[in-house]
């Protein structure tokens, strides 16, 4: 049986893994390769690296980091952040990333999803969707969650899959960093609406949150950052707990 995946997410700034809130008080956490290997060791099924550099120089450094990660890591990894064009997708895949996530650029130019899926295969195109609850529905936000769009989240996810996205990375931005638990309602609605795997993100705070997002939320994978970076839980601990509660995982 296909297992549920646990995915740590690492923010990379100028080639270094950082921690911080809203781009403020960035704290150096270490080297992306070493941290990635440590997570592989601790049972991560996959990793996500997000480039939060704003400069062209930062992006070049990120591409070099992707090459080094690909040379050492023996589990798959997705990269995203600032991916604007087909050339960006190509550069990151050629650097060795397994998948590339599209967010703002996909909303602004939805045909980018089709182009990327046609050229590189839908299995390596992840649509990252940042959603916020507004009056009973979920609205898609772009530019790191700062700018609202006219898209309703479930509709946008379906549209993205129709255009060729092979996975949805779904972040409930109202939950991000809260440790209050994943947005189960959002996750479930998207998981039931699309045919591709859904990665739930935003709000992981304890073991029960993970269990809940897989059982009630119907997620295929769950992503967390701070919880893992601070050493509160390891992917292995999460998976051991899930295993004891009957969720198929790789141990």
């Amino acid at each position: 049986m296909l297992t549920r995946r646990i995915i740590p997410c690492l923010d990379v700034h100028e080639g270094r893994v950082v921690k911080g809130t809203q781009f403020l008080n960035l704290r150096d956490m270490g080297d992306p390769v070493e941290l990635g290997l440590a997570y592989e060791e601790k049972g991560a099924d996959e990793l996500v690296y997000l480039d939060i550099s704003a400069s062209a120089e930062g992006r070049r450094t990120f591409t070099q980091a992707v090459e080094k990660i690909a040379a050492k890591l023996r589990i798959p990894f997705t990269v995203g952040g600032g991916v604007r064009t087909i050339e960006d997708v190509r550069r990151l895949l050629e650097a060795g990333a397994d998948k590339v996530s599209l967010n703002t650029a996909a909303v602004e130019n939805p045909s980018l999803i089709e182009e990327a899926a046609d050229l590189f295969g839908r299995q390596c195109i992840v649509l990252a969707v940042d959603a916020k609850e507004e009056g009973g529905t979920y609205r898609v936000y772009i530019r790191g969650g700062r700018e609202p769009t006219p898209w309703e989240a479930i509709t946008w996810c379906k549209e993205g899959v129709r255009r060729g996205a092979g996975e949805i990375l779904l972040t409930a931005i109202g939950r991000d960093g809260t440790r209050d638990g994943f947005d189960i309602s959002l996750t479930r609605q998207v998981a039931e609406a699309v045919s591709v795997p859904v990665i739930a993100s935003g709000g992981a705070g304890n073991l029960h949150h993970f269990l809940e997002v897989f059982t009630e939320g119907k997620a295929d994978a769950a992503l967390a950052a701070g919880l893992f970076h601070e050493g509160i839980l390891t992917p292995y601990e999460v998976k051991s707990f899930l295993f004891r509660h009957g969720i198929p995982v790789r141990l």
Binding site: L2, D45, E46, D220
Partner: peptide, 11 residues
Amino acid sequence: APRLPHIGWNL
């Protein structure tokens, strides 16, 4: 298949 592509770790 429940979902496609078949992505992830399987036995």
